[in-house]
Design a protein around this nucleic acid. Sequence first.
DNA 1: CAGTGAGCGAGCTTCCGCTTGACTT
Length: 777
Amino acid sequence: MKNLIIVESPAKAKTIEKFLGADYRVMSSFGHIRDLRKKDFSIDVDHGFRPVYEIPAEKKDLVSKLRAAAKEADTVWLASDEDREGEAIAWHLYEVLELKPENTHRIVFHEITKPAILHAIENPRDIDIDRVNAQQARRVLDRIVGFELSPVLWKKIKPALSAGRVQSVAVRLICEREKEIRDFTPQPYFRVTGRFAATGSPVPVKSELNTRLADEQAASRFLEDCRLASFSVADVSVRPLKRAPAPPFTTSTLQQEASRRLGFTVSQTMRVAQQLYEAGLITYMRTDSLNLSELAIKDISQLVTSTYGDSYLHVRHYHTKSKGAQEAHEAIRPSYIDQVSIEGTQQEQKLYRLIRMRTLASQMADAQIEKTTVEIAPSTRPERFVAHGEVVKFSGFLKAYGDAAPDAESQTLPSLEPGMALGMESVTATERFTQPPARYNEASLVRKMEELGIGRPSTYAPTISTIQGRDYVERGEKEGETRSYRMLTLTPAGISATTETETAGSDKGRLVPTDVGMVVNDFLTEYFPDILDYNFTARIEEKFDEIAEGNLGWDKEIADFYSGFHPDIEKTNAMRMEHKVGERLLGADPATGKPVSVKIGRFGPMVQIGDTANDEKPMFASLQHGQSVATITLEEALKLFELPRAVGDFEGKPVVAAIGRFGPYLRHDGKFVSIPAGLAPQTITIEEAQALIEKKRADDANKIVKEFPEMPGLQVLNGRFGVYLAYKPEGAKKAVNYKLPKGTEGATLTLADAQAIMKAQDEAPAKPRARRKATRK
DNA sequence: CAGTGAGCGAGCTTCCGCTTGACTT
């Protein structure tokens, strides 16, 4: 073999191999091949912060294959990405594969085209060790922060928590937003809209008053004045408006648009994009670059011209302005812009279409819009109603990529002249409330992180899973609360007033901090404000850039950081906390006089009555879903101790009611019975409990439909979803369940039937299943 | 599958960024 090229991604390797002749073999490193040891700190602090690297077990096979291939090759081309991580991958490959300087070359290309690759091969260089050192600094710093900070949390708050340069700041964003919302008091005001008619036009003029009114009294006075008023056009202004298309997608903008337009979660978007990438349909999906290859721009231009015409073409070159962008790849675009639609799942088709239209639009002309603003004056008041109208004069890029939600306010106005009289159809004053800032959703959090330069395209989705998996943050489930508002309406018939209701404050699908998240965040921001600073990453990135330029030594910079950071760790660890972190004293228990407090326990948020200073063991109770350390009251806390509750006796044995992991339940004679909605463990009577227990017994008796004496362990059972087959071989811990084909009568099933069903399903290929939500390892 | 929680304390947990399968239930 003459040449071995090593790239990071196997899909990329496959593509490149097709471009090159038989003299080239292209292999993939599947990302990094070596990292700091997983288990321990693996940084020798006393010897220049020397990192201790290892090849992870799952990479051993791959590395020996690469090593063998490198031995056979005359020349090895290290073609990992040009960014910091890519340079480090090249260096690790060089070290681990024991490559020789005389037949090893470092090459880079930013687009996967034959000319780009051939050009790269003609212009090789050496590994840039300064850039590698910048990566080592980044890696070592993240390990130091993560592995020194996390144990402080285990000690001071709760085991198995985690902290890090990226995740802790992401959690902070969510916590601070929540506090803003909590501290926000909605202020009522009245918004006034008016609907007018121009003589000779069937099109109504919808407008809004240019000021808000303070209260219902003011609104009522305003409507009274309008009742006596005549209305006329005071001013008409027309101005042209240009709108430019958005640049092509990067990882973060793709995640945002897929969330907004398609309702995808961040990880869903990445999973689907990965499919498209592996099928060769789009370019690489983890990128911060806005760049399109010259070849791509040429193809797009041709397509725009042939589809829409010359006037729609506007070739544009976009430049990244996001912090810390490393631009190793192109923007996300279709591999072949001519390919209008693809085969694949619904999701794949939708995402492909989105990417394609955005790419196309990015090379199209501005939309030309004529915006008309009309002011309407009531004769009795100084305020003005304002109406906006929009007419698209030239659609430009909107032809390919319109708005997801067209502006509800935009309308086409009839032609109006100053001085024209208008007829009043209605004037409505609606009570509105000032809005707190919106909670983040996954995509808007990614946008904010990118803005702050925190995290990378490859880590946005995993970070969001991590902070949810650690139970710092959860997706909200509250629909919001209903509130009422006043609405006053003036029509030619007179003024009427009504009270309406709406829901407000929904957090559905939004990211909400948990108690643990809040407490950890308060703790970290108090004791490690530098790390939690929103600009921490941006500041150290400047250092990393200097290291990459060869102006600073990486070990010295790390030593500098460590000398400030480590003493804070020691100090915090040595601190005797007077109270547990996040603890809140609610008051005294009226029954015993003992203090009642809430805090984060080993298993999460809990209430405690009494303290350890006394000899008696305190009483404990977990907070329930929806309750929070920050807001729970003494009354609510005391209620938690009402369970488990002795309901009474049944058949001479006690019945106890409580709430468990799966909701409210009764326990009687060692058996558990769920308490259905409508009944509560706090109030359930012994008669109600007895009925539930008897019903459960009847259901259980009904459960076994049929058994087979010839085959012990095989049963036909009645389950939640109907009749099914269960087989538990002797000695097995768990039964295997089998679905019965539609229309099968359970009671008449023969052993042969059952065995046939089992055989068929045992042999059926396993269907891919949705992954469980991020779990702790 | 159905709450635990101090005290004594072994041994465990943990980071960010590159990349995909192999593996359950």
